[in-house]
Design a protein around this nucleic acid. Structure first.
Lengths: 243, 243
DNA sequence: TAAATTAAATAGTATAATATTTTAACTTTA
DNA sequence: TAAAGTTAAAATATTATACTATTTAATTTA
């Protein structure tokens, strides 16, 4: 009947107030909150309490706090990073396998790419091709981080074409998990070359607006990545056993 | 080449240290950290800084802080709530529609329930039937919150049968979004009766280990929920227009 | 023996002072 | 005169300390 009002922590109230203000559009990205001493007065709390609230809002991705002249708390676009971080924390204890990840990737992305094949615009295909070009360059220069970032972005763009924000978020999540796996297993150049080739085939199939072929290419690609990553994992396991 | 070393915030260092200790199993759920004054000494920081770190770890779901004798910071099982909260924050600005949600539900849950039909154990079916019983009782007593909680749990259990933690998490996410929608639209008793009837049909199909029928029932169920929620949303829109 | 009281441990909040960082304005110098 | 260096001010970051509130357990009391 009534909601339990525990967590008497004052900082929680401040967090709620500011979060709600952002949700209701009273505070927009770019807006600067008044300086700390003024917020202390406004909320009638001490510095420590206010700072707890600001730090919390920062962790949740609602604002950034900067020092110095022109500093202060600045409302930011709420992005997906805090959520991805929390999910990683949670899944860390569930030990998902590469197979688990693959299963979900195929489910989500084969569906997504098939829908995308019907809806994709020339501009979006252009972006995919640019990305593939950027991948090729990163491969040359050996920029691993840039390479991984672009590889993920390719899948995110395709998910974005579906105009279903929930589907896009879920693809974001699984691609983020995949990225974490890659970061650990450090695949070699051959791996990335195969990925790039697959991405090019997918982009080509999208260009022809062929849903079935696009879907098939995507599934083939995801399975290939699975195979390579599992092999890497096996190698890693063996070498750590022999220690 | 080099990693940027910003965020000199001391509290971030403390958060990292404790999070890593949890990840590495050095700290386990139930463990109690020393009291604040001692942690202040251990880390060599002031109270305010330490508390910033503890508040952060609390928001991230790593620990709970309690007052009083035998109180202090207690390591907790990292659960999915912080992640769901962050995702809700993020999606709030994307305005997903009930149709978007339905599309993803069908994709994930029709797949999940089909797999579950082959793998489900008698105990798990028992739990589903218990849940349906609990739903019937909550329906009688008019306990909305209990009812909603059980309705979600039904889908979570089925997703759990697949033994794929990633799939389970994604179902958790979409069911949580659905729950938020229900909280806003406040469906009536008829709605919940239809849901319960559908859940019973799904449980029965699972008992017979019939993947196709199970899948069909699940899809029918999700679409029915979609229809009802959209109708409610329409009614709400009209009545707010007339204000 | 059960209820009420007290005491101790512990987190929560407040206040004030100092340190650090950032940016802009200013000054110097080649 | 333009680049480089310096300084000053604004703002947060951190520290230190004192005080308050809350929770639990032990103790007293009816």
């Amino acid at each position: 009947m009534f909601e339990s009002v525990k967590s008497n922590r004052i900082s929680e109230y401040i967090i709620s107030q500011i979060r709600n203000a952002v949700f209701e559009g009273k505070l927009k990205p770019g807006d600067r909150l008044p300086p700390e001493h003024q917020l202390m007065e406004t909320f009638g709390v001490s510095k420590a309490t206010l700072r707890e609230a600001l730090r919390g809002l920062e962790l949740l991705g609602f604002l950034q706090v900067r020092k110095g002249v022109e500093g202060g708390a600045i409302i930011t676009e709420v992005d997906i990073k805090p959520a991805l971080g929390c999910l990683t924390n949670y899944l860390h204890f569930k030990n998902p396998s590469i197979g688990d990840l693959t299963q979900v990737r195929i489910l989500l992305e084969s569906y997504g790419v098939e829908k995308a094949a019907a809806a994709i615009s020339p501009e979006e295909i252009g972006r995919l091709e640019e990305l593939n070009e950027a991948c090729a360059q990163a491969l040359e220069s050996g920029n691993q981080d840039e390479l991984r970032k672009n590889e993920i972005e390719f899948h995110r763009i395709i998910a974005g074409v579906t105009a279903n924000p929930i589907l896009a978020v879920l693809v974001d999540i699984v691609e983020n998990l995949l990225d974490g796996t890659k970061e650990i297993l450090q695949p070699d150049k051959t791996f990335s070359e195969k990925v790039l080739a697959a991405h090019k085939r997918i982009a080509a199939a999208l260009l022809q607006k062929n849903p079935d072929q696009t879907r098939d290419e995507m599934i083939k690609h995801i399975r290939e990545v699975e195979r390579d990553l599992i092999r890497l994992q096996e190698e890693r396991r063996k070498s750590s056993d022999s220690l």
